[in-house]
Write a protein that binds this DNA or RNA. Structure first.
Lengths: 260, 260
DNA sequence: CGGAAACTTGAGCAGAGTCAATAATTGTGG
DNA sequence: CCACAATTATTGACTCTGCTCAAGTTTCCG
């Protein structure tokens, strides 16, 4: 068997003594050894092909909280995979306000907004100290021409971005404040779970303002909804630390759109 | 010069006597002769390459109003370019409601929601009699591996879909009913103008219900906003026929988000 | 021509926004 | 390390935009 399905090599590998080399804080770890590759690169590639991908990826110094990964209008050169930390993507409205268009967690890929116009339509900002892998897009395109699996993977990534944007559109268009907040909490919970972290107890990396901006709500409404969820024992909220106490009930709230 | 920039061959070509062959209602017209190719395929391709693309495209019988182009959950095989008519894309919410995620006009491409999961997450429904070109995706992928320009074009198309979804997110998240309706009217106006149709006088192909669904408003609110626009002489509204009487004022309404 | 679907308009209501005051947390510089 | 400023979050009172419900009208299509 000359192929290595990297999707099946999951993070249990850090039970080995060599945890240093595989730690996601270590900027030098290669794609093949990265514990996040099941999320970021869930395709079968020949080991040689992984090495070729590895070669084009640039790993820079970590971003500090508030630092920009790229700015609106900047020439588009790369997409980025998050290794640690959280990044928010924002676009600027005609009136000059921010619109948060997404939160990106470790293993997720952002920056694809820039492809069409050859410059970024969004800005990306670190919400906390964050390490990213920079993937130069022109070299990725070249490599994609040689590796059909990689081309398909990038089509797929962009398609996922489209479907997740459309889910947000539905959320904004049809759901109440309670439903929106519950949905966001569940989304973060699920994504944490995929990374083998707790699905019920986690720290929100973003401010109430960012949550409200993302969900089309005011900061006050977000705060009130969280207080209400706490009063009804769905959650324990301790500033940014969230504990989901009643997952089923929270899911019910999230899905309870005014059904006919 | 062995390359033909098809983007520069615009619809003025129908001044020739041979308008039959180039008419967008004729299902047999080739990509090279299609008057919409400036919108749907705005890239430089070798004439031979256009022919190769042409060969893989299937042109079926027109869809009648209300007919499905594809259903949610159907296996993903193709993307579609619209030749004539209008298609709406909808997704189904958890509660079983429709969410309109987009309106597609002639020259525009839809169906890319299905790539990630290999089946469509949306359904597509004709709002009026419509002709489409079906582009089998697997063959498009193969061809993209040979034609870097085509690969880039499809990355670009998907990126455009992402940025336009994000604009809708902003609209839903930040803008009032008036601003949302004005924005949609202006979007249709602009897209008509690109197709060399009137930017000020056109027929809305979708119902008030579809508009409301798309914009996150009720049918009653859409109706009231249009009445209000008419009273203030921004528009003349005659059921689905819209005439923009004061384009500048309408643009002001559309951009007037509560700026700080 | 008749029934259904689509649209318009009005009255009343409620969910989320605004404004405002206070509290808690974080960051900064002496 | 503490004190002060700045930012962030909570909570309350009031307002307003857009929703609900309802009735009536127009348009579409068989």
């Amino acid at each position: 068997m000359s192929r290595k399905n990297i999707a099946s090599s999951n993070s249990t590998s850090d039970s080995s003594g060599n945890s240093q080399a595989k730690c996601h804080h270590n900027p030098l770890v290669s794609c093949g050894d990265c514990r996040l590759n099941a999320i970021c690169l869930p395709i079968s590639l020949h080991v040689d092909d992984i090495d070729r991908l590895d070669e084009i990826i640039q790993r820079g110094r970590p971003l500090q909280k508030g630092e920009y990964l790229y700015h609106t209008g900047a020439p588009f050169r790369s997409v980025f995979a998050i290794r640690s930390g959280t990044i928010k993507a924002i676009s600027i409205t005609n009136g000059g306000q921010e619109q948060v268009t997404g939160f990106y967690l470790p293993g997720e890929i952002l920056g694809m907004d820039g492809i069409a116009q050859n410059h970024h339509t969004n800005s990306a900002i670190a919400l906390e100290t964050a390490a990213v892998c920079e993937i130069p897009f022109s070299r990725l395109e070249e490599l994609s021409l040689k590796l059909p699996g990689l081309q398909r993977h990038f089509f797929s990534l962009m398609s996922k971005e489209i479907t997740s944007d459309q889910q947000l559109i539905t959320l904004l268009s049809k759901n109440s404040a309670d439903e929106r907040v519950a949905s966001l909490l569940l989304s973060i919970s699920t994504r944490n779970h995929h990374r083998h972290l707790s699905a019920t107890c986690f720290r929100l990396p973003m401010s109430r303002a960012d949550i409200g901006n993302y969900l089309g709500l005011t900061i006050e409404t977000v705060s009130r909804v969280l207080s209400r969820f706490q009063k009804s024992n769905l959650l324990a909220v301790d500033k940014k630390e969230i504990t989901i106490l009643d997952m089923d009930a929270l899911k019910k709230v999230a899905q309870a759109e005014s059904r006919c």
